[in-house]
Amino acid sequence: MNPGPLSYFLVSAFGIGAVVSGWLVFRTDSMLRAAYWLMVSFVAVGAMLIVLDAQFLGLILILMMSGEMTIMAIFMILFMMNPAGLNPMTMVHQHRTSIIAGVGSFIVLAFVGVVAEFPDRPVPAGNATVALGEELLGRSMLVFESAGVALLAVMIGAIAIAAKQGRFGDAFDGSEEPSIDVETGDRS
């Protein structure tokens, strides 16, 4: 299959959108904005999936992320130190190492992606969603079911970990205040 110019344009546009919004996640100081920039990044990738004929997966990704990112935002409001919204917050460490690691992994992966030759066997015309459905409930049923069971186990496990009364008794027994004073420690 030969993608038309429209596909090129859409993929490039959404691609730039996904990268820029992904970058903005770590550039904003608002917890709400960080969570929703991440969602925008996911939505852009979802749109790219739709352009690449994986309609169902793209939409499912968008559907999932809207809920998950709101939960993210609420957790950030819960656990970050100032819930009042747009308050200042620059909290980074080992900044230089991180930048090097990020740029390095980008260069390596992009290099591999551009240089390496991949077989040219495009998706045949037809309904990819139907094919996926038949795969899920046919040959790969075990994988699909395992994912379901894993999710169930995680649900139970997550509640057990987060609940006050844990497996080893009350979460407060044996706990101590952190020893490092983050207010004065300048380690970035």
Partner: peptide, 23 residues
């Protein structure tokens, strides 16, 4: 597509290493 994916991955690596907050 692969360059875009690499860029997103690189940003992810940077974020996961540099941020202090768990979330």
């Amino acid at each position: 597509l692969l360059v875009v994916a690499a860029a997103i991955f690189g940003i992810g690596v940077y974020g996961a290493l540099s941020q202090q907050s768990f979330v």
